[in-house]
């Protein structure tokens, strides 16, 4: 555990909590892509199956359980509790275009051809693209509430901090996880355009982020 990794995990947790509280308090999931949230729930489910097979630390186990619970709770709020506020017409990204290539790639490029390994690889690849339906939705409607942009900011920051964590681990312990690093770099690139808009529009102005 290093400072980048810990801060990264905390930003990830903060992002998920921000989204959950935003929906819970406003009783509305307007502007939120339910598809991205289902993909994240799928990411956690397929990655954290090792909760049943290996114990790493109390921290690791607790964080995994918290992420899983919050991911499913968020999906529940969007699709069941506050379903009437869900903008399904704007959330029109075709997730099969992500799921099929990601599933195919996880069979082809993995560390071992074993069920848990393939599912772990699938989760890594899927996480790198899971935010695309949300970014697509913002592009399509041309705006996002500031609280939604704060959620995306913390999620992007988590990714950037994990990159720093891998650089640190490579130099201090010789640790290098090729699949995670390549996917992580790809994932972080998706946030660059958003980061630019966040700093130039949301932080400088106020309220909503509108696209030019």
């Amino acid at each position: 555990m290093n400072i980048f990794r810990l801060l990264g995990d905390m930003c990830h947790l903060v992002a998920i909590i921000i989204l959950f509280l935003k929906i819970w308090r406003s009783k509305s999931c307007a502007g939120i892509s339910g598809k991205s949230q289902v993909l994240f729930a799928l990411v956690f489910t397929t990655r954290y199956l090792d909760l049943f097979t290996s114990f790493i630390s109390v921290y690791n186990t607790v964080m995994k359980v918290v992420f899983l619970v919050l991911a499913y709770a968020t999906v529940y709020l969007i699709y069941l509790r506050f379903r009437s506020t869900y903008n399904s017409e704007s959330d029109s990204f075709r997730v099969e275009f992500l799921l099929v290539p990601v599933a195919g790639l996880s069979f082809l490029e993995n560390y071992a051809f074993a069920p848990l390994e393939i599912l772990w690889t699938f989760s890594i690849y899927l996480e790198s693209v899971a935010i695309l339906p949300q970014l697509f939705m913002i592009t399509k409607t041309g705006e996002a509430e500031s609280i939604t942009t704060h959620y995306l900011f913390f999620l992007g920051l988590y990714r950037a901090l994990y990159l720093a964590n891998w650089v640190w681990r490579y130099h201090t312990e010789g640790f290098f996880d090729q699949i995670a690093v390549v996917s992580g770099v790809v994932q972080t690139i998706f946030y660059c355009d958003f980061f630019y808009l966040y700093f130039t529009k949301v932080l400088r102005g106020s309220g909503k982020m509108t696209l030019p």
């Binding site: 090792d50 630390s57 964080m63 995994k64 992420f67 560390y111 071992a112 772990w120 964590n165 995670a180």
Partner: peptide, 10 residues
């Protein structure tokens, strides 16, 4: 036989 490391990251 590849010996896989435990995945300690989240």
């Amino acid at each position: 036989q590849i010996i896989l490391k435990k995945k300690d990251e989240l």
